[in-house]
C-alpha cells in the first residue's frame, strides 16, 4: 500500500498560475504608475507666483501703546500675511495665505482645563470683555533663521491666567490648536501629529512680555497669522507661538510640544532664541530680516535678555535648547 505524504503547501496557498505569469506585468505597471505620479509631483508648481496678502479686517478700538515695543522698522502687511509657517494650511510659506482665506473664527471657544479652579469653556468675547488691548511691536525670529518686526495687538497672557486661578500643582501650560480637517487641508496629511501642541513653563507664561495676540497693525488678526487667538513669546523661536488656540491646560509635567515630538534632536521644549546653539542643519548665529540682503547677528533671547535671562539662570541652555 502506498501512503502518499501530505503536500507541504495547501493548494489554496499556491499562487494562481495566471497571477504568477502576470507578476512582471504587475511590477512593471506599479513601478510605471509610481514613477508617473512622482513625475507629476515634481513637475507641479514648476513656476512660482506671488501670494496675495490678507484682506484688511475690522479695526480694533482703544489699543494702547507699550513700553515693551521695539523701536525698529516694522515689516510690511504684505510680508507678514504672505510668508507664514502654519502647517494646518499647507507646508509652503504662501499656502496659508491662500488656504486659510475662508477659515471660520466666529464663534470661537477656548477650553480651560487641568490644575486650576476655574475650568470652563470660554467664548472669545468673554475672554476679551473688559480686557485692555495693547500694541506690542516685537522682534519675531523663526527657527529657520529669518526674522520680522511685527506690530501685534494683544494682552498679557498673565491677565487671563489669573482669571483661571491655577492651583499650586500647575507648573506648565499646554496649549492646543484647533484640529478641523474640514477647514484645515494641511491636517489631512500626517506631516506632524495633529492637533498642534505647545507648552510654556508657568513663569514663562506669566512673564509680562508673553501675550495672547488678537490683532495685527491695529486690525483683527488675519487667519494666516493665527486668528482669532495666538500666543506670542518674543524671546522664543516662532514655532512656540501657537496659533488658533482652542485649549489651555494647566499641567504638572512638561508637555511634549509637537516639533519636539517630530524631531527631538532639532527642536526642544524651551526653544529660546540662542545664537550659540546651532540647528543641526544651519547656523542660528545670524538671521535674514525679511526685506534685507545682509544678514543680522542673532541676539541672545532675541534681544530680550535683560527681561528674561533671569528665568534661566543656572540652566544649561545647550542641553535645554
Amino acid at each position: 500500500m502506498l501512503i502518499k505524504p501530505p503536500a507541504d503547501i495547501r493548494s489554496s496557498e499556491i499562487t494562481d498560475k495566471k497571477l504568477y505569469l502576470n507578476r512582471r506585468e504587475f511590477i512593471r505597471a506599479t513601478t510605471g504608475t509610481a514613477a508617473a505620479v512622482a513625475t507629476g509631483v515634481i513637475g507641479a508648481g514648476a513656476f512660482l507666483r506671488a501670494a496675495t496678502p490678507a484682506p484688511h479686517g475690522r479695526r480694533l478700538e482703544n489699543v494702547g501703546k507699550s513700553a515693551f515695543s521695539a523701536d525698529e522698522k516694522v515689516n510690511k502687511w504684505e510680508e507678514i500675511t504672505t510668508y507664514n509657517n502654519y502647517y494646518e494650511f499647507g507646508t509652503d510659506k504662501d499656502s496659508p495665505s491662500m488656504l486659510a482665506r475662508n477659515f471660520k473664527t466666529e464663534p470661537w471657544t477656548v477650553t480651560v482645563d487641568g490644575e486650576c479652579n476655574k475650568k470652563a469653556a470660554w467664548h472669545l468675547e468673554d475672554v476679551l470683555k473688559g480686557q485692555a488691548l495693547e500694541e506690542r511691536i516685537y522682534r519675531h525670529r523663526c527657527v529657520e533663521a529669518w526674522s520680522m518686526i511685527i506690530p501685534w495687538v494683544g494682552f498679557p497672557l498673565s491677565d487671563f491666567i489669573k482669571k483661571c486661578e491655577p492651583t499650586p500643582k500647575a507648573k506648565f501650560i499646554e496649549f492646543t490648536t484647533l484640529y478641523d480637517p474640514k477647514q484645515m487641508p494641511g491636517v489631512r496629511s500626517p506631516v506632524l501629529r495633529w492637533p498642534y501642541v505647545e507648552g510654556l513653563r508657568l513663569d514663562e507664561a506669566m512673564h509680562p512680555l508673553t501675550i495672547l495676540a488678537v490683532g495685527l497693525y491695529g486690525e483683527v488678526i488675519p487667519n494666516q497669522d493665527g486668528a482669532p487667538l495666538r500666543l506670542v513669546v518674543p524671546w522664543k523661536y516662532g514655532f512656540k507661538h501657537i496659533k488658533s488656540i482652542v485649549k489651555i491646560k494647566f499641567v504638572e509635567k512638561q508637555p511634549l510640544n509637537t516639533w519636539q515630538e517630530s524631531a527631538p534632536q532639532e527642536y526642544g521644549f524651551y526653544s529660546n532664541v540662542n545664537p550659540t546653539v546651532d540647528h543641526p542643519r544651519w547656523t542660528q548665529a545670524s538671521e535674514r530680516r525679511i526685506g534685507e540682503f545682509l544678514r543680522r547677528k542673532t541676539l541672545m533671547f532675541n534681544g530680550y535678555g535683560d527681561q528674561v535671562a533671569g528665568m534661566y539662570s543656572g540652566m544649561d541652555l545647550k542641553r535645554n535648547y
Binding site: V37, A38, V41, I42, T91, E144, S189, V191, L192, A263
Partner: peptide, 15 residues
C-alpha cells in the same frame, strides 16, 4: 532640507 513634509523628496526619490 525638509522639516516635516517629505512628499516632494519622496517623489524625486521614486523618479
Amino acid at each position: 532640507l525638509v522639516k516635516a513634509d517629505v512628499s516632494r523628496p519622496i517623489a524625486y526619490g521614486i523618479v
